[in-house]
């Protein structure tokens, strides 16, 4: 077989940090107080935002990189890694966040895209990037641009896990199919997936992505977190699901426990109790196409 894909030193460091976050919960926070609640609950990282996705959805308008003052204040308050989002293709927002030394950048469909054709060349940066994906082809295109972590897109701010489930099933299923293909079949599959052949071959050989594969977009309960993890996600992002619920601290703690004990129903039973109301959810089937964030990104 021909050359397969390999990591350089800078990429190993980026993926290394992603490895440290496995089995954990990354929480969206919009201020210092929420960041403290998240860290106290056991979050492995926080995503500093100006508005959580459900508010972006409600309020509309152009959603951009968060106010620097908010990110800075959060960086000063917590000891866990701090992530922040940039618009798809907005490499200058990424340069600004790198200068601010955030620990991870999310090139995110939750914000309004800045470029409808190109993504950020993430390999040009020292800071690691995470990108959303709905299927294996999209995941591998992002990795070829330098993403050090993939997360399902799900449907952010919906409180509905159905899209996250669809996306993790698609990615894991397409990887499983590759592992039983003959080399010439994998080459055809690379064409169908619209993904680089060296990365497709890597996945065919190993059966998983070369970077951690997390889940995001609609996770609102401990059972939701355990569901995507039993389906193959290695950690979860929870956005609106925590701070739009009745008791954020309690729910945050419960989702952290559920991510660790994701295949132990007795523990999941314990952490599913006494949480108060979850965030209200949206029916994705009734959403108009232009309301869906997952379709952003190419």
């Amino acid at each position: 077989m021909s050359e397969t894909w390999q990591m350089n030193e800078s990429f190993r460091l980026k993926v290394g940090l992603a490895e440290m976050l496995k089995g954990g919960v990354i929480m969206d926070v919009t201020n210092v107080e929420q960041a403290r609640i998240a860290e106290d609950a056991g979050a492995v990282a926080v995503m500093a935002l100006e508005r959580v996705p459900s508010d972006i959805r409600k309020e509309g308008g152009v959603a951009r990189m968060a106010n620097i003052a908010i990110i800075k204040a959060i960086q000063e308050q917590v000891t866990i890694p701090v992530m922040a989002k940039v618009r798809i293709g907005h490499f200058v927002e990424a340069q600004v966040l790198e200068a601010l030394a955030v620990d991870f950048i999310d090139e995110s469909e939750v914000l309004t895209p800045a470029d409808e054709e190109h993504h950020v060349m993430k390999s040009d940066f020292k800071v690691p990037f995470v990108c959303g994906a709905r299927n294996l082809g999209e995941a591998l295109r992002r990795i070829s641009e330098g993403a050090a972590m993939i997360r399902t897109k799900g449907e952010a701010g919906s409180g509905n896990v159905v899209e996250a489930v669809r996306h993790i099933r698609a990615i894991v299923g397409e990887m499983r199919a590759l592992t039983v293909m003959r080399p010439e079949e994998a080459a055809v599959e690379a064409k169908r997936l619209n993904a680089p052949l060296d990365l497709v071959r890597w996945v065919a050989e190993h059966g998983h992505l070369p970077v951690p594969n997390f889940s995001a977009g609609g996770i609102a309960t401990p059972a939701d977190a355990a569901l995507v993890m039993q389906l193959g996600a290695e950690a979860v992002f929870v956005g609106s699901g925590i701070f739009k619920s009745a008791d954020p601290a309690e729910r945050a703690r419960a989702i952290v426990r559920a991510a660790t004990h994701y295949n132990e129903p007795e523990v999941l039973l314990e952490c599913s109790q006494g949480l108060g109301e979850a965030m209200p959810g949206l029916d994705i089937a009734k959403m108009k196409d232009e309301e869906k964030m997952a379709a952003r990104g190419w």
């Binding site: 490895e19 440290m20 860290e39 056991g42 866990i80 890694p81 952290v256």
Partner: peptide, 11 residues
């Protein structure tokens, strides 16, 4: 292992 020590402590 490696990870976040603050998270480990919660458990």
């Amino acid at each position: 292992p490696g990870g976040e020590s603050t998270t480990f402590l919660k458990f």
